[in-house]
Design a protein around this nucleic acid. Sequence first.
DNA 1: GCCATTTACATAGCTTGCTATCTAAAAACA
DNA 2: TGTTTTTAGATAGCAAGCTATGTAAATGGC
Lengths: 149, 149
Amino acid sequence: MALTRESSAGYMTNWAARLFARELERQLAPSGIAPAYMPVLFALADGSALTQKELARRAAVEQPTMAATLNRMERDAMIIRTRDPEDKRSALVALTPLAQGKIETVERVVSAINELALEQLVPDERRQFIALLGRVIRVLEAQDGALGN
Amino acid sequence: MALTRESSAGYMTNWAARLFARELERQLAPSGIAPAYMPVLFALADGSALTQKELARRAAVEQPTMAATLNRMERDAMIIRTRDPEDKRSALVALTPLAQGKIETVERVVSAINELALEQLVPDERRQFIALLGRVIRVLEAQDGALGN
DNA sequence: GCCATTTACATAGCTTGCTATCTAAAAACA
DNA sequence: TGTTTTTAGATAGCAAGCTATGTAAATGGC
């Protein structure tokens, strides 16, 4: 079978992800929230404080990626890092009131974009889409875990 | 309804795309081909020469992104740019024999990764997955086109 | 024929991802 | 106790995406 971009799951997934990111960035811009801040925002929304390592795990990104994201969030006054007295290597990250105050807006934006993206799909197809993505992710995660890191 | 990453189409799509990219990079590394080179490789595989603008359109990336990709490909001796005598603003891009010689390998790698990613899905589900991605892309592209550029 | 507009590309600057590698603290163990 | 190993983060360096903006060539009116 012909290998066209339209029939390559990887190419299509990358393409869709870039379109999601563009739209998200556009809609989040006024709030001062960048897309990469979102997993951190949601993880700490309940007022808890977590380590960088735990945040990286939840966002499914590598440690240096999370370090850079937290640096930008700190610059933008979205988080504060406090040295962990129990373990001097690590810091506990918590949201500032500024960030707390933006969570609802972010949730609305995310819902709106998901709604837009899926607007041509009936409820059953939406569930299917999410479920299929989940199954693809599980396979690729297993592969990723199998070789190193 | 709860807004968890597992139920956000955007988050899941981004996650899947990153996993695809990691695996692709790993498997393409020995060949010296970076993932972003692929759309260029396939567009020029027949020996034709295209402008940067046309390559950007086919890869669905912005012009400066394609410019940077072509710079890296030139550095890696994958393409040659020849000034277009008809239009002194533009250059025609063609693959070098080095790049031509890698196309088959790249095709094999792409097929293998798509096969891996979809290995848990039956043929019908695979078609569904690609089709749903296509419909999501179409909606987001329309939105993107509607506001500027 | 000349000026205004459009077009093709270049460049600057930023985000978000990655790998590889370093440092310092904590934990394990001999 | 002292040494080795593991763990948490930091840092360097690169890829690949984006927007905004600049420049030079081509095009389109008038």
